[in-house]
Design a binder for these strands. Sequence first.
DNA 1: TCATTGTGACTGACTGGTCAGTCATAACAG
DNA 2: CTGTTATGACTGACCAGTCAGTCACAATGA
Lengths: 253, 253
Amino acid sequence: MPIRDIPPNRSPVSPREVDSGEANSGEANSGKVDFGKADARDVAPVGARRRAERLEPAQRRRVILDAALAVFAESGFAAARMQDVAARAGIAKGTLYLYFEDKAALFEGLVRDAVDPVLGTMERELAAYPGSTRDFLTLLFRHLAQEAVHSPRRHIIRLMLGEGERFPALADFYYREVVARGLDLLRAINARALQRGEIMSDAGLRFPQLLVAPLLVAAVWEGLFQRTDPLDVSAMLDAHAEVVLRGLGWREP
Amino acid sequence: MPIRDIPPNRSPVSPREVDSGEANSGEANSGKVDFGKADARDVAPVGARRRAERLEPAQRRRVILDAALAVFAESGFAAARMQDVAARAGIAKGTLYLYFEDKAALFEGLVRDAVDPVLGTMERELAAYPGSTRDFLTLLFRHLAQEAVHSPRRHIIRLMLGEGERFPALADFYYREVVARGLDLLRAINARALQRGEIMSDAGLRFPQLLVAPLLVAAVWEGLFQRTDPLDVSAMLDAHAEVVLRGLGWREP
DNA sequence: TCATTGTGACTGACTGGTCAGTCATAACAG
DNA sequence: CTGTTATGACTGACCAGTCAGTCACAATGA
C-alpha cells in the first residue's frame, strides 16, 4: 500500500535510463485530506510525461507483439525485460499486463501469432498445383527460405530451439501448428510424386524431416556464423533440391 | 487454452550424480534431526561448515564443468543459477569464483571444454580409412549422431543455438573449433569421393552443410518433440545417407 | 452549448523476490 | 604457526508483476 509511507531518509532510486521521474517537485496536495504524516513523497511529477495514444485493443496487441518479437529475439526469453518490451511498444510496463497475463503468456502469444498463416497457403497450393513435383518443391523451398531466413518470424524458430525445452506446452503447440502440418505437407508431396511415378524412393515419405533439414541450418547459420562465413542460402537450397530429388530417384514424368 | 504452464524451471537441482566422491555427505536439511551420539557440533547453528574434500585444481575444474553443463543445459544461460552449479558440484558458491572469473567465463569454459576431442579422431580416421566413401559416411553419421543426440555434449549444441547470438566471441570459437573443422572434413570426404569417381556431383563440396543438416534436426528434435512424436534417428540417418549418396551420383567403385 | 459524470486505457512507483558476485572467516595442509 | 583453499552470509542491483491513480474522451442532461 502506497499509504504506508517511507522514512524520507531512504533514497532508493534506480539510476537507470528509465529514471524515476523527478523527485518530488513540490506542490503539496490539493483536496486530499491526508491524515497522518504530512508526507512529502510522490505527488505528480508533472514533467513531460508522454501518454500513449489510445488504441483499439487489437491494434495495441499488435504493437505489443511486434515489440515483444524484437526484444525476445534479441535477448531470449529469460533475459528479455518487460520494461524494454513496453518501451519499444511506446507504452508503460503496466499496460502490458492489461493484454497479457504474464511474461510467459506474452511469449506464447508471440509464437502463436507468428505461426499462423505460413502453411495454409502452401497446403492449398499443393492441392491445385498443376506442375511437376520438382517445380513445386522448388517453390516450397523458396517460400520457406523466405520464412526461415528473411522474415522477422525467423527469430521464432531460434527462440523455439533455444527455449522450447523449457516450455513443453509451447513446444507441443508449435509441433501441432507448424511441425506436424509441415511434415504432413511434405508427406503429401512425396506420396503424390510416388504415385505419379516421379520418384522411386519412399525415404521422403518416412522421413520428411530430411527435406527441410537444410532450412533449419539456414535459419541458425544466419544468426551465428553469417558474419564469419556467409552462406548463400538460395544456392544451397537449389543444390539441396537437386541432390534430394535425384536421391529419391527422380525421373522426368 | 492448452498452453498455460511452467515458466522457467525453478527446480532446486538434485546435487547427486556428478558427485565429487563423498564430500558433502548428505544430511543437509530434510528434517532429520539426528541428535544422536558424538559429533557434538553437528547440531550446527551457524558455524558448522562442511568442507568439500580437497581436490586437485584440474579435477575440481572438471567437476565444476560437469555440473555446469547439467545446469546450463537444463536452464539456459540466463536462467541458470550459480548456486545450483555449486550445489551440483558439491561445493560452495564462492568456490566457483576461484576457478572462473564470472558466469560468462564459466559458460565459455564449458563450451570450450566440451568441444575439444570430437573431430580430431574422425579427421585422423579419414586419412587412413581403407573402405569406400559410403562406409565412411555411414561411420561418420553414426559417430556424430552419438554426439548430437546421445552424448551429454548434445546440450552444447542447443545452448549455442539459443545463446550463441549473445556471445559472438563464443560463436566464433565454436565456428573455428567445430563448424569449420567439421565442414572441412566433409569437404575432404567429398573431394576424395569425386577424385575416386565414387560420386559425380560437387554439391556436397560446395555445401557440406547439406550432409549434416539432418543431424541438427535430430539434436533439436530430441529436446522438443521426442515426447510427442518419437523420431528414430538411426533410421533417419540411414535414409539420409542413402538419399544423399544417390543424389550425389553414387556408383559402386 | 457547456458542465458533469462515467469509462477504461494507460501510467509508473513500489513490493517482494531473486541472484551474481564479494569478503571476512573458517578449515585444512604442511 | 602460515599460507592456501573453501565457505556462505551478505550486498547491491535488477526485474516481474501490482495497483492506486491519471487522463482523454464519450455520454448525459441542463
